[in-house]
Write a protein that binds this DNA or RNA. Structure first.
Lengths: 340, 340
DNA sequence: CTGAAAGCGCTAACAT
DNA sequence: ATGTTAGCGCTTTCAG
């Protein structure tokens, strides 16, 4: 426009600025900012003070071009309704940051193609990737392994895919739920699952059903909620409880679903909990402790799961991705409160 | 180790691989992958098929070195307890992605230094930044503007900092709450705020108190919860309600706090809501609709706020950062349910 | 221990 | 419309 240069992006201060200021070479500057390099104390001092003066910070992108490391970890997430995932994100970012890694998060909950999203994330040269979205496919896994990008499937159990997985033992969790119901005398049991496609819904139901059958009981009614939300839980509960009025217990695939079920039972149907109807949730979110719900639920050790995930990623990033595949199923535990 | 090259990071396929495969120059490949470049149909065809065959994807990092654009937007977040922020993150990532931008999220809830975190994010050459964490400081803002990185403060109102802000009009929201209480005959009002340092807590209380005083009332009791959580709400409510047993209404700075307050009132103190005690929340999270709470609350237009934030960022990223500063305060609305 | 030089993968003038 | 040439900001041999 005018003669004044219109720097849309004002120029950052670069290593060469620092080098000039300190009267040394560019490589000297680089060495000072490279952990394991050999620099004399005097050199380090000179460079550091020049850098400080100019407020210099190495450009990670440029660095990554040589080092092939970005310290970026892609997180592909589909579940933006379950409060558990806010906790998960909190833990992920915290653990990653403490290892000097950063989270590049990608939302695929609007029905985006997971494989395509993963590719876009890979274009940033991520050092690792965690997928907490339903669809895991072998092509995706292959692509990552071809590029040497460690990948872990978080909180899902892909059936035939060869990939690292960190997940709660949902099947055992389902069995645990069944046993708790049975021990307390409940016999007419129903199940409210999540969207049909999810592995979590599948395994929780499977374990629950199996344990029931081992005790000579059968699962009387089953319905899949359209989402893992309170409202979907209400809708599902309304349908299940009216079509199976004889039910005396309902196992819900997550806590939000359980809240919806409880409210339908109490306020629409006038049932008392746990007297007329026993309820069990899954996850143990913060509000499960609320007096209004006091939900008995199956807790997954989210903290440990996230830590493990980041550990696996971190280990592979630093030691190479040729370690054996790991499938970690974390044991769940029963948290007894007042709905059973 | 052996003679076999141990490619920790298997080599990606690069533009030059594609060029060789297609029998053209590297720049030709680059042009095909650059939106506004002039390439013949035949060339495009040749390159595209070679790229497809090799499964080539341009390296964003390398590209950014020349273009000075990364399509990365840093999101600095402190609030990983309020479910509202999961929704916000959902909206942010969705809107950003639809503009071809990606979210680099940084967690500062563990007491990390916001300025230092922002600098780390900037090392990735982010094209923009949104800060949804308490501490906004002029140095940080200056640093961004020096580097031409558009910045918006989201859901907070820094007092003396010259920065773009997108925030709910918390003060008006507080007034709205006060008026609702007054109209319904409540006269002995208390307030439960969030952590003292937050601008949201400050403005919500300010508006509430002012509107009360304009009507000749005074705010009888005030307490700041230690966090915006259910448990903190319980603790605060317990303290406030026992020290001020005459209160007939409590305005809570967010919905989780309100849930805690309701449960203490109902289950510890045996009060009926809204008969003995009226409760008002803030945010309108999903569970506010739950039968167990049916919370009357002040809704902030989160969807619009996020959209605006991304629009501002997007506009500045494409048109340069020399647009006038914008301070947008979004009107809140009263959502009437059953606690008032 | 330090500097010079090459190059990471890509884009952007500049020629043709 | 296409290829050639120079870098972007940094790391990393390689000499000395």
């Amino acid at each position: 426009m005018t003669e004044i240069e219109k720097n849309a992006r004002a120029q950052r201060v670069t290593a060469s600025d620092v080098a000039r200021e300190a009267g040394v070479s560019i490589s000297a500057v680089s060495r000072v900012f490279t952990p394991g390099a050999s620099v004399s104390a005097r050199m380090r001092e000179k460079v550091l003070s020049a850098a400080e003066k100019l407020d210099y910070r190495p450009n990670v992108m440029a660095r990554s071009l040589m080092t092939q490391r970005t310290a970026l970890v892609g997180i592909i997430l589909a579940n933006f309704h379950n409060p558990l995932y806010l906790t998960a994100l909190d833990l992920f970012t915290t653990h990653l940051q403490s290892r000097g890694l950063r989270a590049l998060v990608f939302n695929v909950s609007r029905g985006d193609d997971v494989v395509e999203s993963a590719r876009q994330v890979m274009q940033y040269g991520v050092d690792g990737m965690v997928i907490a979205a339903a669809a895991m496919s072998q092509p995706l896994v292959d692509q990552c392994s071809r590029q040497g990008i460690p990948l872990v499937a978080f909180a899902r159990q892909p059936r035939r895919t060869r990939v690292n997985v960190v997940c709660a033992d949902n099947e055992a969790g389902g069995r645990l739920a069944a046993r708790a119901f049975i021990e307390r005398g409940y016999r007419q049991l129903g199940y409210i699952g999540g969207p049909a496609a999810t592995s979590t819904a599948y395994f929780r139901e499977k374990g629950f059903r199996q344990a029931l059958e081992e005790s000579g009981l059968t699962l009387l009614g089953t319905i899949n909620a359209s989402a893992y939300t309170y409202d979907a839980g209400r809708a599902a509960a309304e349908s299940l409880l009216t079509s199976h009025p004889n039910l005396d217990g309902v196992f819900c695939a997550n806590d939000l679903l359980a809240f919806g079920t409880m409210d339908v039972a109490r306020y629409r149907l006038g049932l008392s909990i746990p007297g007329d109807l026993g309820i069990m949730g899954f996850d143990d979110i913060e509000l499960a402790t609320a007096d209004s719900y006091q939900l008995t639920t199956i807790r997954q050790p989210l903290q440990d799961m996230v830590k493990q995930t980041v550990d696996i990623l971190g280990q592979r990033i630093s030691e190479g991705d040729d370690l054996p595949l790991r499938k970690l199923l974390f044991p769940c535990s029963l948290v007894e409160r007042a709905t059973l």
